[in-house]
Design a protein around this nucleic acid. Structure first.
Lengths: 140, 140, 140, 140
DNA sequence: GTGGTCTAGACCACT
DNA sequence: GTGGTCTAGACCACA
């Protein structure tokens, strides 16, 4: 766990995700949970790179992603700042992404010999751990 | 959708998965759902390659994967045949793979604005559709 | 004998095994005997290919095998590293493979004019040399 | 198990060996154990092929191997006959073959998690089953 | 720089 | 005809 300024990102070498994606996901999560409020300045590319002991290009790529997704904005010469929350993804787009992710997951897991219930419990556990959230079939 | 002999494989250029993986997944599905019963001969490397309009090596790579996973066996000079199902991976390895897939999925989905329950229902639906149900044991 | 960095692989053109298999076996041996400890970086695909004077794809195929067998993990953009040892295959699968190897061996050797005991001693010697002994438990 | 005239050969589709090799090994074993004495006529290529329900070329190839190894001789227009036993392989050649087979076997088995003793017992069992022979460490 | 994927075309052993 | 191996050369994503 690396803590620089206000940002807390975890780089796991054993992770399947490339490093830049781990950064994107980490920061996106912090914005979503509010631990990085609107207007907060992100650490500099070089600063974060040094802290995480990774290549600066990798951080730059992650920041590029975040900017492209509209989660942060660059203010010329000042750095990157968490931007106003907007509805970035239409409901349709969100559904599409969920469905894509579900398909990928099922493909990955289909040939393992697990019960449906076990798989669901794993996912629920991971979701709760990541978001700090709700119950199973009780959200409406 | 390409249909050759008994095998139906879909190659989608926009898919994140490489072509050979799409073939592996596609055939693995057909075996899992029983539409390719044990002993069935797969289409020839060159035949499938022509049908899908891809290079034969790409098909060969996919077939190599399937063979390595024990889903299929080659009989010299005759072709590849769906083999008797067996448990290739250790419990431990299966758990590890499930956990990896869960992590990947959760990270992909966490920032979308879905309730945990909705996500679980999606997964459950996809799993049941594939495996022909087995009961969640809870959740409803 | 080709020595590149920490890895020593021998390619023999007269060998019955294909080149990529020789590489897989060679590196697997080095991992098994501990001369390539966990975390070690393998030589790069292109580097090893040049040293062995073979095509890079052949090395890539060997590395793919090692990865599939869980002996080695790739870190994006960094290279391949020897991974934590783990039991990939189920008991059942291991037994099957042993039995297949035994059949192949016995059929190869049966017509030679050796006593059973001589053959066993040869095997035992080779196994002990590799694994650093563990006791036969019987036979002598 | 197929029994044609005097020859008993077993073709196993699940066998790792190509079919022609199974035939060679089978007949070689019958000659070695004396169930095919010197001078015996082998079944015709076409006859054996039909019995085994395989391609005649495959039988022809097996017979070619046997002839090349000097185990059988062709008498023009009459067919193939088991030839006089000669010392076909020098002691040195035999040792070399054993050693090659041992290396191959060990390579195949090294990464499986078996005790040396278990492996030896497997081999001994298979050898005895195939040859009908002797004890373990008691041949001199 | 790293590995991963794909194409094109060749050769081999086996049936 | 079948799959399996190898070469040569290209392109991609990631660090």
């Amino acid at each position: 766990m690396t803590d620089i300024g206000n940002v807390t990102v975890q780089i796991v070498t054993g992770d399947a995700r490339p490093i830049f994606k781990q950064i994107v996901d980490g920061i996106r999560m912090e914005i979503a949970t509010g631990s990085l409020p609107v207007g907060t300045k992100l650490p500099s590319v070089r600063g974060l790179a040094m802290q995480l002991m990774i290549n600066a290009n990798t951080v730059a790529k992650a920041y590029g992603e975040l900017t492209a997704q509209g989660l942060v904005e660059s203010r010329q010469g000042l750095g990157l700042f968490v931007s106003e929350p907007r509805q970035l993804l239409s409901e349709e787009e969100q559904k599409k992404r969920l469905s894509t992710a579900v398909d990928a997951f099922v493909n990955e897991v289909a040939y393992l010999e697990f019960e449906t219930g076990d798989v669901l419990r794993e996912i629920e556990g991971a979701l709760i751990k990541l978001k700090g959230a709700s119950g199973t079939g009780d959200n409406e």
